[in-house]
Write a protein that binds this DNA or RNA. Structure first.
Length: 199
DNA sequence: GCGACAG
DNA sequence: ATCTTGTCGC
């Protein structure tokens, strides 16, 4: 049996935005379970600037991915890939840095245009930028806001969309992404917790 | 020049 | 992104 190992990466910040926690979760589709989970803590490299997201999250994300002991079938990022003004979103940078297939799965549109998307799970519409298809808006759950999928690297758009749908059997976002989001927050909470000295 | 703008 | 409880709906 071929095992599909889908990794999800996401980051969480403290109130000031100075501290960042990046999580990398490896999810086994066949076994329906988390295979690996790693979190990297550190100082935030750069401020958030639309279009320059990689400068802020690429390094922390890579730190978490370096701890992964297996080669994921694909890495799903909470960001855009080619659906970017310069066709180079965070997902593309992660693909370049790791050599692994990556998918950009964002919760909102950064650039480009698209037609209407049907209301049912699986419905979609291409995202076009300068007459070029750079991604696809995909409805992962019926009557739920769609997600914006684009290629990061080493994978085709059709395959990327297929993975996102299979990885989102119940909620809007792919399971690996939800888990990474939760783990990043949890790790940050633990570090920020002020241990009280008791007798 | 003005507005828009992943997380 | 982050501060935040309960609540309405499938």
């Amino acid at each position: 049996m071929r095992i599909n190992l889908w990794a999800g990466v996401d980051a969480a910040y403290d109130l000031t935005g100075a501290l960042v926690a990046s999580a990398a979760v490896v999810w086994s589709f066949e076994e329906v379970r988390v295979v690996e989970c790693h979190v990297a803590l550190g100082a935030t490299p750069a401020p958030y600037v639309p279009g320059r997201f990689a400068e802020r999250e690429a390094a922390p994300t890579l730190a978490a991915l370096r701890a992964v002991g297996v080669r994921p079938s694909v890495v799903i990022c909470d960001a855009h890939g080619r659906a970017h003004p310069r066709r180079w979103g965070l997902a593309c940078e992660i693909a370049r840095l790791t050599g692994w297939p990556t998918i950009g799965c964002a919760k909102s549109l950064l650039c480009g245009r698209h037609g209407p998307v049907g209301p049912a799970r699986g419905d979609w519409a291409d995202i076009e930028l300068d007459g070029e298809v750079v991604g696809r808006v995909v409805r992962t759950q019926t009557n739920v806001r769609p997600v914006y999928v684009s290629v990061g690297g080493n994978i085709e758009l059709d395959a990327a969309v297929e993975v996102v749908l299979l990885a989102s059997p119940r909620f809007r976002l792919p399971e690996p992404l939800r888990l990474a989001h939760q783990q990043a927050r949890l790790a940050l909470t633990k570090v920020l917790a002020r241990p009280r000295v008791t007798a």
